[in-house]
Amino acid sequence: MDEVPELQRLERGDSAMELTWSDGTENSVDYRTLRYWCPCAKCGPRRGAQDLAELLQAEVAAYPQEMPTVQTVGGYALHFEWSSGCSSGIYRFERLWSIANALDPDDGKPYVHGAW
């Protein structure tokens, strides 16, 4: 992957977060989209199969609207804590960039263990 700009600002809203990147890009990420793309070992494999992916999507859509707590992870990623559903995912900044820019964060590949 090409160099991803640095994330400089993350502002949490009620249903989405606003991201500001070092190259000036600003985008908004809907929490549902964010949560659908959870990189954890439980959610990841589900996106690999159409029916499971749809189920995941439906699950995510049914989560109550809430603002997550956000923590940085060792300078390379962010962790989102939700009161419902899955909070296991560690989102690398490259992943957030892909999600924010509607690129496939899984890169077209089915989930591969250890590749997050």
Partner: peptide
């Protein structure tokens, strides 16, 4: 092996939090 590794990784993530 992959399954138990995956399980461990999840636990590690939870523990990390």
């Amino acid at each position: 092996q992959a399954y138990s590794q995956m399980k461990r990784k999840m636990t590690l993530q939870e523990m990390g939090a």
